[in-house]
């Protein structure tokens, strides 16, 4: 059974305590498993949303597909599941992760726009390529964001 600390520590003990805190942060970050399946699921949601452009009819009466809202809900559910699986709710993810997280919706919009363009030229089959690109890129970027958040834990 541990006794409560009594009295102030010496300068060496205080420095050792501070070093131990750094070691704990390192151990925490090292112990977290990257939830690869859930990150791939995020990529899957992005791919599904981009693929939705194949069924859209761009033009004067264009109406954006409702799959965008469903995709957003699915992404939020996956983010919740990532927290549950890792057991950590990050406080700060760091500037690199924030940049990557901001890049993901921009990338999806670009790929969605390209897909709409392909659809308007009758090349709906090519949406498969943009959809696969969305899957690969979003999975990769989500992995970068997660690892950046872990790096932030170490600091």
């Amino acid at each position: 059974m541990e006794n409560d600390f009594e009295g102030r520590p010496s300068s060496e003990e205080a420095a050792a305590s501070l070093r131990d805190l750094g070691a704990d942060r390192q151990a925490l970050a090292d112990g977290v498993q990257v939830p690869k399946m859930l990150l791939a699921a995020l990529g899957g949601v992005a791919a599904w949303w981009v693929a939705g452009a194949a069924g859209a009819n761009p033009g004067e009466n264009y109406e954006p597909p409702t799959s965008g809202w469903l995709g957003l809900v699915a992404a939020l559910v996956i983010a919740h599941l990532i927290r549950r699986e890792t057991g950590i709710r990050f406080r700060k993810m760091g500037p690199r992760a924030a940049l990557v997280m901001a890049a993901i919706p921009v990338l999806c919009l670009i790929l969605f726009s390209i897909s709409l363009g392909l659809g308007s030229f009758g090349a709906r089959w090519a949406v498969l390529l943009t959809s696969l690109s969305a899957f690969g890129l979003v999975t990769w970027l989500a992995g970068i964001a997660f690892r950046s958040a872990l790096d932030q834990l170490r600091r």
């Binding site: 541990e2 006794n3 409560d4 600390f5 520590p9 305590s17 131990d20 805190l21 704990d24 942060r25 925490l28 057991g87 950590i88 709710r89 990050f90 406080r91 834990l153």
Partner: peptide, 20 residues
């Protein structure tokens, strides 16, 4: 806080919003 385990608990919790 300075009891060793409690110091480490606080040190880890400080880095996150919540932890399991």
């Amino acid at each position: 806080i300075h009891a060793p385990v409690r110091l480490r608990i606080c040190g880890l919790l400080r880095q996150v919003e919540q932890m399991d």
